[in-house]
């Protein structure tokens, strides 16, 4: 926070010399305040990981002095951390693959075939949007852990997550596929391509951006999920969010360690999600706007 406060001044000076509107100064100052409030807690966690518990207790609001790496190396040498990361990755990958494959398959006839039940079937997906996993969480837990014997497995989490992500996926993908020009399909038919051939050779390559968008949304959802893994996964099958939550309660006295663990859990995901920011935003907008 203190860094943000000091860096306002140079920004003000440069802007004043450039622009004729005095309002710019205010805009930049306000922007910096927003940035400081947004990033402050995250940066505090990152920096806190470089401090010792004694430093944190003595002066909670200070910078690391000296910088210690032991918290971070401790987490990186902790096999549990890597195990959680592996579980999170595998579950997210499984979820994403199922969602994208099943989603594009379902969206294709709903977008480009003419048949009587097209709209009723699409309505099934739209209605699916209304049911969050929370509503069915208790029977879902019983179904997966008892009836299907998939408790404490990657598939046990990935399958229901995919089911609950599919409605959104189909709702986003269908208009995307509908927007592909009809001429393409006609041209392919004239060349003797079947509808399945059109799907494989033309539609799939062209719908890459749409599939990336829904894939990223499914991956983010799975990576960040907490409730379903909380009920279904124990011990070394736990995912990173469960690991972070448990680490913070088990080592509540070791604040610096908690910060280091949390930071390492968020950094790879943060980089990936921010790189995919455009996809996430366009996906959300696609789903939001009607």
């Amino acid at each position: 926070m203190s860094t943000a406060a000091t860096s306002i001044k140079p920004a003000m000076k440069t802007k004043k010399s450039q622009g004729k509107y005095g309002g710019n100064v205010l805009v930049y100052a306000l922007s910096l305040a927003v940035v400081a409030l947004t990033l402050g807690p995250v940066l505090y966690g990152v920096l806190g990981g470089f401090r010792t518990n004694a430093q944190l207790a003595q002066a909670p609001a200070a910078l690391p002095e000296p910088w210690v790496l032991s918290n971070y190396t401790g987490v990186l040498n902790n096999p549990e951390f890597w195990r959680y990361a592996l579980n999170s990755t595998m579950i997210a990958v499984l979820t994403t693959v199922i969602v994208v494959v099943f989603g594009i398959m379902a969206a294709y006839p709903l977008a480009r075939y003419q048949f009587r039940l097209r709209e009723p079937i699409f309505m099934v997906f739209v209605l699916g949007l209304l049911f969050p996993a929370t509503v069915a969480i208790v029977p879902l837990f019983i179904l997966i852990s008892r009836d299907l014997n998939l408790g404490n497995t990657w598939w046990g989490v990935a399958l229901p997550q995919a089911a609950f992500a599919l409605p959104m996926t189909v709702v986003i993908l269908r208009p995307f596929l509908m927007a592909l020009p009809q001429e393409l399909e006609e041209a392919a038919q004239l060349d003797g391509t079947s509808r399945i051939g059109f799907f494989w050779r033309i539609l799939l390559p062209l719908s890459g951006p749409g599939m990336v968008t829904v894939g990223v949304l499914a991956f983010v959802g799975s990576w960040n999920a907490y409730l379903l893994p909380l009920l279904l996964l124990q011990g070394e099958m736990r995912t990173l969010p469960l690991g972070v939550a448990d680490f913070s309660t088990e080592h509540s006295a070791d604040t610096a360690g908690v910060f280091a663990f949390t930071t390492l859990a968020m950094i790879p995901a943060l980089i990936f999600f921010l790189a995919m920011q455009r996809r996430i935003v366009s996906g959300l907008q696609g789903a939001v706007k009607g």
């Binding site: 947004t38 995250v42 943060l270 921010l274």
Partner: peptide
């Protein structure tokens, strides 16, 4: 930057 908190999981944000 504004988007950062949104892409963090609620658990990580909560723990911090």
């Amino acid at each position: 930057i504004i988007f950062v908190p949104y892409v963090l999981s609620e658990v990580i944000a909560g723990v911090v």
